[in-house]
């Protein structure tokens, strides 16, 4: 089943066509990668899906329904979560608080119950704290749970941001270059987390990544972009063999 579909999306900034009629479909349960050279329009696709940009033309369908006009927070409530290329954590807050914010859509505490604390609010805090702690254990970040996020090393911040997205309990997880700037070991950990999230938590993953080794290893299907246009889509082996892709992207590295 197709869970997320883009139909003929156009997006421009001034004279730049960031997306030039892009169509793609993501199937439920798969790991779908979007690759392409710098400035190809990958992040723009994510921003359209999560509602930060609204495309000039085209449709975005989530579970068959058009979501073009929904504000970002509503899309999050529907089960779309993401991480950002330039980490967008709440830097002054602790890891726990960042993850608790990820639980926002699943909590009910309001200005009254929150202010009273005793009763509903405390019970809810404890319940969701348990879920958050479970994610902390899963991502192996127990020892930094009370640290302010801004003080953490880059690789750990990326992991915390993944945790925050995971706390939303999403059906589709959009990850924008989760391995960027990481060493080999951190990259390997991250790949393992993504696979676990996909397999054990049944989360569909859409991944933007420059590390070709990882992409070819873990993705079910790959879409290649260049200058805002989709130049191919298919299984890793097909993409690797596609001369257009090699010219646009892989070739760049090998030359």
């Amino acid at each position: 089943m197709i869970i997320l579909e883009l139909k003929d999306i156009y997006l421009h900034f001034g004279g730049i066509m960031a997306l030039n009629g892009v169509s793609l479909d993501v199937r439920e349960g798969e790991i779908f990668a979007i690759i392409g050279p710098n400035g190809a329009g990958k992040t723009s696709i994510f921003n359209c899906i999560s509602g930060l940009y609204s495309p000039d033309r085209g449709q975005i369908l989530y579970k068959g329904k058009e979501i073009n006009r929904l504000s970002p927070f509503k899309r999050a409530q529907l089960g779309l979560a993401r991480s950002f290329q330039n980490i967008e954590l709440f830097r002054g807050m602790t890891v726990i608080d960042n993850l608790m914010l990820g639980r926002h859509i699943h909590m009910r505490t309001n200005l009254f119950t929150g202010g009273l604390w005793f009763g509903k609010a405390r019970g809810e805090e404890i319940r969701h704290r348990e879920i958050v702690e479970e994610i902390i254990d899963f991502l192996e970040i127990q020892d930094i749970r009370k640290k302010a996020v801004g003080t953490l090393a880059y690789g750990l911040q990326k992991r915390v941001e993944l945790g925050r997205a995971l706390a939303l309990d999403p059906q589709v997880l959009l990850l924008d270059e989760p391995m960027a700037g990481m060493n080999a070991e951190e990259t390997e950990d991250m790949a393992r987390f993504i696979l676990d999230i996909n397999e054990e938590r049944d989360v569909t993953v859409v991944l933007i990544e420059h590390d070709m080794g990882v992409v070819m290893d873990i993705s079910d299907r790959i879409c290649t972009l260049d200058f805002g246009e989709r130049i191919s889509m298919g299984k890793p082996a097909e993409i690797q063999a596609d001369p257009k892709v090699i010219a646009a992207y892989l070739g760049e590295e090998e030359l």
Partner: peptide, 19 residues
């Protein structure tokens, strides 16, 4: 609690809060 965290999230990064 939840509302207060949302307030701080808006203060620190309102786009991330929305997302």
């Amino acid at each position: 609690t939840r509302p207060g965290r949302a307030f701080v999230a808006i203060r620190d990064r309102y786009l991330a809060a929305e997302v």
